[in-house]
Amino acid sequence: MQQIAGKLVKVMEECSNIRKNGINDFHHYKYATSADVLEKVNASLVRHKVATIVAPEITSSNDVINNKGNAEHLVTVKVNITLVDTESGESIVVTGFGSGQDGGDKAVMKAQTAAIKYAYMLSLAISTNDDPEADSRTDENVSSPLEQPLKRENANDTLLCSDCGVKVSIGVKNVSIKKYGKSLCMKCQKKSQAIA
């Protein structure tokens, strides 16, 4: 493992920072695009003669109702990426999870893309030059829509984890929205803590 580890250290140096070039107009935030991450990581892996083999696995697939009342598919994918040093034959596996939601046939592709992107970002310690915990609105006690407690409109409303689609209580959803910016079940909150 010594040779591949040395090569991965070089890849980590070359890919230590990726700019946030993507813009989410709906939620008003910038993000590192999957294309930017994969382009930079792939170029470095190729330069150091490290091949990749991606093996995706669907861990959950559910039909959910979006905010507009339309049915969509919510899929969570786990990817195992085997990194192989083509010179020594040594290999290592990195794992990532991602979720995708879509009304058509793109949920799996969205989930795979997110899983691959975050597997590389976490495994190679790639920074986007921000700190998700540095939220001045929270620090200043200024309330944003995400920080408002959610109220159930009627008793038949279904509360779902946005990552895996399981039902959650209103209390779990409220705490999750405040801490992670989205509705997560306890299991997915633990995964988010482990990743952070």
Rank of each mutant, 00 (worst) to 15 (best):
M1V: 10
M1G: 13
Q2E: 09
I4E: 14
A5V: 06
A5D: 13
G6N: 05
K7P: 08
K10I: 12
V11N: 01
M12P: 08
M12I: 10
S16T: 03
R19E: 12
I23V: 14
N24I: 12
D25Y: 10
H27R: 13
H27V: 08
Y31H: 10
T33E: 05
L38S: 03
L38W: 02
K40T: 11
A43R: 15
S44Q: 03
S44L: 07
V46F: 00
V46E: 08
R47F: 13
H48K: 08
V50W: 06
A51V: 08
A51G: 02
T52W: 07
I53K: 12
V54Q: 11
V54I: 15
V54T: 14
A55Y: 09
S60K: 07
S60W: 09
S61W: 10
D63S: 15
I65Y: 02
N67E: 13
A71F: 08
A71K: 04
T76Q: 08
T76N: 08
K78T: 14
V79I: 01
L83E: 00
T86L: 11
S88C: 09
G89Q: 13
S91L: 11
I92E: 13
V93H: 07
T95I: 13
G96R: 06
S99M: 02
S99W: 00
G100W: 01
D105T: 12
K106I: 01
T113M: 14
A115W: 12
I116T: 04
I116W: 06
Y118G: 01
L122V: 08
S123Q: 03
L124I: 06
S127I: 00
S127Y: 08
T128A: 11
D130S: 15
D131G: 06
E133K: 14
S136G: 07
R137A: 07
T138K: 15
D139P: 03
E140M: 13
E140S: 07
V142Q: 14
S144Y: 07
S144E: 11
P145L: 00
L146T: 05
L146Y: 05
E147M: 14
L150P: 02
R152F: 04
E153Q: 06
N154G: 15
A155M: 09
T158D: 15
L159Q: 02
C161Q: 10
C161E: 03
D163C: 09
C164I: 05
G165R: 02
V166S: 07
K167A: 11
S169H: 00
I170D: 03
I170K: 01
I170P: 03
V172G: 00
K173G: 05
S176Q: 05
G181S: 04
G181R: 04
K182F: 03
S183W: 02
C185Y: 04
C185D: 09
K187C: 12
C188R: 05
K190L: 08
I195A: 14
A196R: 14
